[in-house]
């Protein structure tokens, strides 16, 4: 299939334009994070006058970034672990059993994903505050409350993706394990999970990402003690005197874990993310 000259040029122009559009903010983030303060206080400069790593040192002192970091890490890891265990069990049920309500469960789980978050936020806020007042359950402003909230955010996607992976594993494999006397859970953990490892990893990254980057619920359900990066970083950028080089350094640092995880597991994640549209 030969490509005519002008078609090739259009293609190159499209790719170049999109690459520039994508790269400019990334370049701004990276280059500004190594600029001295005077460079970011005047008009934007394309190249740093000198390269300094000072912003990466100073950023921890300007705002309690370390506290935000720990909060985000604890909450995201907690949500990731809980959501994975729950999703693995649910995906096993959905993939290997035919039971009443199966279709309803799958559809409604997906539907909740599409509802506006603000609809849950107001009642959840009141419920949390009241559980605290009535039963002494400290969910509002606590990391546990955030873990409980976030673990559900990644559940529908995780269940769908894992069920897809389980479906692709021949039933004979786990049936053989069942005949050998292993229980159904043994078959799940010894046979299915090892075979679906890329899917499990993708789900782990996805649920970590969801919790690490969520803003709406974190802005209401956390206090200054439990503030996460997603909310704390904005506070950084709205101080009266903004150290933009430090803000960019912090943005870069908090992006790296998520970005690396996503890019490493690109294939499995992309497959899962696009499956909804491509299959139906």
């Amino acid at each position: 299939m030969a490509e005519s000259g002008w078609a090739r040029w259009i293609r190159r122009a499209v790719i170049t334009a999109l690459a520039v559009f994508t790269l400019v903010p990334l370049y701004v983030m990276v280059s500004s994070s190594v600029k001295p303060l005077r460079d970011v206080q005047g008009p934007f400069t394309a190249v740093p006058s000198t390269i300094t790593l000072q912003p990466f040192v100073d950023m921890w002192r300007t705002v309690p970034l370390a506290r935000y970091f720990v909060n985000s890490a604890v909450i995201a890891l907690g949500a990731m672990v809980c959501s994975m265990v729950i999703a693995i069990l649910a995906a096993y049920a959905v993939s290997r059993f035919r039971f009443r309500g199966r279709g309803t469960f799958l559809t409604s789980a997906l539907a909740t994903q599409m509802f506006p978050g603000i609809l849950f936020l107001l009642p959840l806020f009141l419920i949390f505050v009241n559980l605290d007042r009535g039963f002494g359950l400290e969910l509002f402003g606590s990391r546990v409350g955030m873990v409980i909230t976030y673990l559900t955010f990644a559940l529908p996607f995780s269940i769908w993706l894992l069920a897809g992976y389980f479906d692709a594993i021949p039933r004979e494999l786990d049936e053989a394990a069942l005949v050998d006397g292993t229980g159904p859970l043994g078959a799940l953990f010894r046979v299915l999970l090892p075979a679906a490892l890329p899917g499990v990893a993708a789900v782990a990254v996805y649920s970590f990402m969801t919790a690490w980057t969520e803003v709406l619920f974190a802005s209401v359900l956390t206090t200054s003690e439990t503030r996460t990066l997603a909310v704390g970083l904005r506070a950084y950028a709205t101080q009266s005197n903004v150290y933009w080089n430090q803000v960019m350094a912090a943005s870069l640092v908090v992006s790296v874990p998520v970005l690396l995880g996503f890019l490493l597991l690109q294939r499995a994640l992309v497959q899962g993310l696009t499956a909804g549209a491509v299959k139906s």
Partner: peptide, 16 residues
């Protein structure tokens, strides 16, 4: 490269 904006945490990219 084209994946990066989607993979980046939203607060980082919007603050940039």
């Amino acid at each position: 490269l084209f994946l990066v904006p989607f993979a980046l945490p939203m607060f980082s990219s919007v603050i940039t």
